[in-house]
Design a protein around this nucleic acid. Structure first.
Lengths: 113, 113
DNA sequence: TCGAAATTTCGACTATACACGAAATAACAA
DNA sequence: TTGTTATTTCGTGTATAGTCGAAATTTCGA
């Protein structure tokens, strides 16, 4: 991942509603959520939400598939992983004070699975 | 960390120059870098850089101390750790496909220290 | 085929972010 | 004190992001 792509992904998440949308979608798991339900849940107008979803999608953080009249949005785990990897990479240049605790967090939460 | 603070930190990093500044400062280690050197390195006007540094500082990602005529900026490891923790926390709700690989990355880079 | 539901696209308005020149402030040396 | 270096603050112009209403599109049931 290059810096411009990282900036795009960070910009996508750097918005109150979009970050909330992303977290909601991540927690929904592989099944994802229809746009309408997200709009209702977060009290955002459907057309406004649509533009937010487009931005998150273009940044590689979410994916969409159509199901009947609904469009289902789900997390792009690979995109999120790439972004986190990019951010973490900076601390690996001799600065374990950041990523050592992070390793614990990531490990402990995954171990519980 | 609450959502608004996360948005502020993400917004601070969601800018080509600011992200570059942050990475440069992180790699500089605890010694940090004077504002002027950062400006020269990234070819940004001193006053423009100053506003970027203020934004990163207010977001809790960097710190500053004065040394003579220079102002030295260094990374706020705790702030960065908090942001990464916030982002990773989302995947811990039963989605190890994100944080499992992240745990490896974080662990391997810290192990080499 | 007609109408309703779900979502997106379009166009316009407003607010905010960004960059820059000029001036102010802080520290130090002569 | 005077001048110089390093940095910040201020004011302004411009570009970009965000929001919304209205209309278009897609899908499906009656």
């Amino acid at each position: 991942m290059l810096l411009p792509e990282a900036v795009e992904a960070l910009s996508a998440l750097a918005h109150e509603h979009r970050l909330a949308v992303f977290r909601l979608i991540i927690r929904a798991g592989a099944g994802g959520l229809p746009a309408g339900e997200i709009a209702r849940e977060l009290d955002v107008l459907p057309n406004t939400l649509s533009s937010h979803l487009t931005i998150l999608g273009h940044a590689g953080l979410i994916q969409s598939r159509r199901n009947g009249r609904s469009v289902i949005y789900s997390a792009d785990y690979n995109g999120m992983r790439t972004l986190l990897g990019f951010l973490v990479a900076d601390c690996c240049d001799g600065h374990p004070e950041i990523c050592a605790p992070l390793a614990e967090v990531a490990q402990s939460c995954c171990a519980s699975e």
